[in-house]
């Protein structure tokens, strides 16, 4: 396909996208079976929706209340705790995921918005035996300190590179300006993204 692992959201190169169906059952079902039925209020109204979407390259079916936040669904139902929450209000970018290749804030999305989408979280970025070039660059160039903003930062950087494969440092700063980091002062993050671009160009 010639899709760049830096730019594309096409994970077919290294994430076997599946024959096998990845089924996630929300905890509410278990609760309900035990006769409790507490599920952020939704069990009572019986509003459980069956969602079909692709999660990190795997076809996924999910029984879920459609108005739960995507970040909670990812972290609690799917066990993908790499997606972090820092503010719950769309201000910090820690919960950034890719929706059809574009960066979106999972704390501002509701579960129903997953339907039919290609979702990439930080857990879906790496290749089979090696980290994604952006992940590798973050590690090598000291872009990770406490690391809590790192997943969102990497996904935003990936979305930036798919829009603009040869960004300047100023472009990188602008592209990451929606992601807050309290540890690094951003410089090494910019270095890392630049390095990933350079590596991509050299290998092209």
């Amino acid at each position: 396909m010639g899709v760049s692992p830096l730019r594309g959201n096409d994970k077919t190169e290294y994430l076997p996208c599946g024959e096998e169906e990845h089924r996630v059952t929300s905890p509410s079902k278990g609760e309900a079976r035990r006769g409790r039925g507490f599920y952020d209020g939704w069990y009572y109204s019986g509003l459980i929706m069956k969602l079909y979407f692709t999660l990190n390259g795997k076809k996924t079916t999910l029984d879920v209340a459609p108005d739960r936040r995507v970040i909670d669904v990812l972290r609690e139902d799917c066990g993908l705790t790499g997606t972090k929450e820092g503010c719950g209000a769309g201000e910090c970018g820690a919960c950034t995921i890719l929706v059809d290749g574009e960066s979106r804030l999972s704390c501002l999305m509701l579960a129903a918005q997953l339907a039919g989408r290609q979702i990439t979280t930080i857990e879906g970025m790496a290749g089979k035996d090696r980290p994604h070039p952006l992940q590798d660059a973050f590690i090598q160039h000291g872009a990770v300190q406490c690391g809590f903003c790192t997943p969102g930062m990497i996904l935003s950087a990936s979305a930036l590179l798919s829009r603009n494969p040869r960004p300047t440092r100023a472009d990188i700063r602008a592209g990451l300006s929606g992601n807050l980091c309290r540890c690094t002062g951003y410089q090494k993050i910019v270095d890392a993204v630049e390095a990933a671009v350079r590596r991509e160009e050299e290998s092209a």
Partner: peptide, 22 residues
């Protein structure tokens, strides 16, 4: 300039912070 011991797990989203314990 040794890279962080915790860098790879954090960049992979695999490091379990307190908040990732359910």
């Amino acid at each position: 300039p040794v890279p962080r011991a915790d860098g790879a797990a954090k960049a992979a989203g695999a490091e379990k912070y307190a908040v990732d314990h359910y």
